[in-house]
Simulated scan of single mutants.
Amino acid sequence: MSWALQIRWLWFQKTDSDRPWKGLEIPVHSNARALFDISIVSQVGQGTNVLFWTDKWLFGCSLAELAPSVVAAVPLKTKQQRTVAEALLGRQWPTDIQSGLSLVGLYEYFQLWDALLEVDLSEENDQHIWRFDNSGLFSTKSAYRAFHIGATTFEPWRRLWKAWAPAKCKVFLWLAIWNKCWTADRLAKRGLPNAASCVFCDQTDEDIQHILTDCVFAREFWYKILEPVGLAASTPGQEDQIFAEWWRKARKRADKLKRKGLNSLIILGAWSLWKHRNRCVFEGGQPCIQVIMQEFNNEKQLWHLAGAKSLQELGLGEAPN
């Protein structure tokens, strides 16, 4: 967001000549400047507000893209100051080239010369177009989104990261949704010792989706914590084998006033299942509904004390005095 806001300075510097700081060096991050440079296309009118060597104004490209060897021979200060109007009036741009050109550079030079012969300046104002918005105008929102083009999406992000829960529980669930927890399936892929079957039900191979949603033990546990708040109908069924998808459907079924509390409740429930599983695997315990319910209630009271108001609003009891 900071980079997107910094690009706003660059946009105003380019398009608003009335800004009192227009001629000053703006301290922006290199990533912000790089995105700005590739996002602006200029349409030349008078040519007084378009930089000849660096702006994208010829065929939608900058001269650095069309003739890199020629541009490399131009001093940096000149590239940052020379406008299109100054360069084309009287064909003064060749005088900016301060060092010799190779054969490739000479070829680019003559190609550039031919292309510039077709450029005619007019009395209209120069226009700068922001490529990431249909209006052609800059917005911080479009710049922010441009930074995330190609990023991997995470559908449950809002109900996970916006819910009230300790950070360690959120991080665990984030890993679980991405199937990154060290359950038997993940250990087997790496040739590491692992349990032959689910420690809860002993009926199928273990993976994190099974532990949290598909296991009969997990379903009984979810029923016992959802039933007191009137959401027993949201208990995972046989068709619910992906935790994140079940969570999405359960939240959709709940009343809007209960959704925040439900998100915290589901995070707490998943955390309790994971801790109970680990106790069975590493401490030799036995899966027991009564035990996990006691662990769940103890943890719930701690969350109440820590300020989990959404759980209290859900009707799961009040924090102890």
Rank of each mutant, 00 (worst) to 15 (best):
F154W: 15
W247T: 01
R145N: 02
W246Y: 08
V216Y: 07
A218W: 10
W246M: 04
W178Y: 10
I149R: 05
R219H: 07
E239C: 09
A270D: 02
T213N: 12
L212Q: 04
G269V: 10
S264K: 01
W182P: 03
W182L: 07
A151Y: 14
T235E: 09
I208C: 02
W161C: 01
K141L: 11
W246G: 00
F172R: 11
K162T: 14
F217H: 05
S142C: 02
S142Y: 06
C169K: 03
I177W: 11
G191K: 15
C181H: 02
A146Y: 04
I211G: 04
C181V: 11
N194F: 06
L231V: 07
T235V: 03
E206L: 06
G230Q: 02
V216R: 01
W222K: 01
A167S: 15
R145W: 07
W271M: 06
L257T: 15
R259D: 03
K170P: 11
E155Q: 13
W161M: 01
S197V: 07
I266F: 04
L187E: 01
K258R: 08
A165T: 02
G150V: 02
A143L: 10
T183L: 13
A250N: 12
G230K: 00
D240E: 08
F200W: 05
A218I: 14
A195K: 03
E245L: 05
E155N: 12
T153I: 09
L273E: 12
W161D: 00
G191Q: 14
V171P: 00
V216I: 13
R248H: 09
A196P: 07
D207R: 05
H210A: 06
S234F: 00
P156D: 05
S272A: 13
T152F: 04
K249M: 14
K180I: 00
R253Y: 14
W174T: 08
L257R: 15
L268D: 01
G136C: 03
W246D: 02
K258Y: 04
A163P: 07
K252F: 15
E245V: 11
T235F: 05
A270G: 10
L212F: 13
W178F: 09
R145A: 04
E155A: 15
D185P: 12
A254D: 09
G261H: 14
R159F: 14
L173M: 11
L262M: 08
A254F: 00
A151N: 14
F172M: 12
L273T: 07
R219W: 12
F217T: 07
R190N: 09
C181P: 02
I211K: 02
N194Q: 10
R253E: 12
L173H: 00
K260A: 10
W157L: 13
L262Q: 03
A218T: 11
W246R: 07
R158Y: 05
I267H: 01
K141D: 03
A250T: 10
A167L: 12
T213K: 06
L173W: 04
F138N: 05
G136R: 01
L212I: 06
N263S: 14
